[in-house]
Design a protein around this nucleic acid. Structure first.
Length: 443
DNA sequence: ACAAATGATTACTT
DNA sequence: AAGTAATCATTTGT
């Protein structure tokens, strides 16, 4: 703590410069009055001399002399003279002071420390806090490992900050009382107004708060560094769990004609995924964001190389085919009830795609049954996608329905469902053909 | 160790 | 503002 020592010294200097007995306000030469006899003059001169040299002497000596002076018969007179002089000069001293501009820099630092939870209320201790955090985040063990690492470091910083701050506070108080004692002591020899003491205390506090500011600043820096590093760490991606990708893929392939989940749908998907998974990040909005990323990536990658995703598409189509079939069947049987079986059945269906009508027709013809009600149709739309896909694999149906045209489930693009793949069917159709048919779709 | 897969980010477009 | 396309950085599978 060199700094501290330095400041102390500086303060000492201030106090001496401003108030010491040998300062500028020492008694003016007592020429003014001629009526005073020489003996007295001599006396006063002697006293002054003693006062002047008091600081040059050892403490004991000084103490003795001070005592002597205090008991001197001239003391009250001298004191009153000092008071008088002081009163005259007092105004000029008082002029340049008492402004308290709330340092914007300091305020900024304070705000930040508060925001980062460094200077705020202590939230439990170390591991307990981490445990609480883990529990609060719903058992998301994955990310709270990193998170608790961050928190641990933050607590460390906070601890250091607080201990240092306390140290400074203590030192400040100690020094203040010391100075005040000194002043009180001196007030027996010279007049010291309460205002002055106040001012002195103010000066001391200001000096110390500037030290505190340094502390705050470096703490802020540390937090910032920690923060940036944490952010970097957060950049590390963690793969979604199997379940999550299942859910997302299911949605994707059952909405192949329009794989653009609405915000609500995204949130729902995010919820579904993030519940099972602990993947979601800590930011509240990151889960839907991740879903958006996923769909963005999926779309582009699917489009880019549909061939690679065939198998997957088949898989998921087959997977949902059963439920879809059931749903359709249900829908057919009681045309009024809409089945909320599928995840997509969010409120905002909004498939106004021009091609969906076509699909409808094919579905109807396929099923052989007829059902009315656009309502049902809307709800079943997703299954239509799925079924269509399934159908496309069944050679018989495929042909029956017009084969190639139907075959590109991706052929939705032809209608502009979602962007056009350049020569979609040309590449895909002949490649695999109905050769590999997943027999799951037997019905 | 390598390449493929994959989630996130960025720049640009609409 | 949301999407696409390219790219980055990491994870995963071999």
């Amino acid at each position: 703590m060199d700094e501290q020592a330095r400041i102390m010294q500086a303060l000492g200097g201030v106090s001496l410069a401003g108030h010491s007995i040998q300062g500028g306000m020492a008694l003016p030469p007592p020429h003014g009055h001629d009526g005073i006899d020489d003996g007295r003059k001599q006396d006063i001169g002697d006293i002054l001399h003693q006062i002047m040299t008091i600081t040059d002497q050892s403490l004991d000596e000084a103490q003795a002399k001070k005592h002597g002076l205090n008991c001197h018969r001239m003391k009250p007179a001298l004191f009153s003279v000092l008071c008088e002089i002081k009163e005259k000069t007092g105004l000029s001293i008082r002029g340049a002071q008492e402004e308290d501009p709330p340092d914007p820099q300091l305020m900024r630092l304070d705000n930040m420390l508060l925001a980062e939870g460094v200077s705020g209320p202590e939230k439990g201790g170390g591991s307990a806090a981490a445990a609480a955090a883990a529990a609060a985040s719903g058992g998301a063990s994955d990310n709270s490992i990193e998170h608790s690492d961050y928190r641990a470091k933050l607590t460390q910083i906070r601890q250091i900050y607080h201990t240092e701050l306390e140290k400074y506070e203590q030192a400040c108080n100690e020094f203040t009382t010391h100075v005040m004692n000194l002043l009180r002591e001196q007030s027996r020899t010279r007049p010291i107004s309460p205002k002055e003491i106040e001012r002195m205390v103010g000066i001391i506090h200001r000096k110390f708060s500037s030290i505190q500011m340094q502390l705050k600043q470096s703490t802020c820096e540390a937090v910032m560094i920690l923060r940036s590093r944490f952010l970097d760490a957060r950049r590390k991606r963690r793969n979604f769990s199997k379940q999550a990708t299942e859910i997302l893929n299911e949605y994707f392939y059952s909405h192949l004609s329009n794989p653009y989940p609405s915000e609500e749908a995204k949130e729902e998907l995010a919820k579904k995924c993030s519940i099972t998974v602990s993947q979601v990040e800590h930011r509240a909005d990151s889960a839907p964001q991740s879903v958006s990323n996923w769909f963005g990536n999926k779309r582009i990658r699917y489009k880019k190389n549909i061939g690679k995703f065939q198998e997957e598409a088949n898989l998921y189509a087959a997977k949902t085919a059963v439920t879809a079939a059931h749903a359709v069947a249900a829908a057919v049987q009681n045309s009024q009830t809409n089945s909320p079986t599928t995840p997509n059945s969010g409120s905002s269906g909004s498939f106004n795609l021009p091609n969906s009508g076509d699909m409808f027709l094919s579905m109807q013809s396929l099923n052989g049954d007829s059902y009315q009600g656009a309502q049902v149709g809307a709800n079943v739309q997703s299954q239509v996608d799925t079924l269509r896909h399934v159908i496309s694999q069944t050679a018989g149906y495929s042909e029956a329905l017009g084969g190639n045209t139907m075959y590109s489930p991706h052929g939705l693009d032809a209608n502009g469902g979602w962007h056009d793949t350049t020569t979609p069917s040309a590449v895909i159709s002949p490649t695999e053909g109905p050769g590999s048919v997943h027999s799951d779709t037997s019905n």
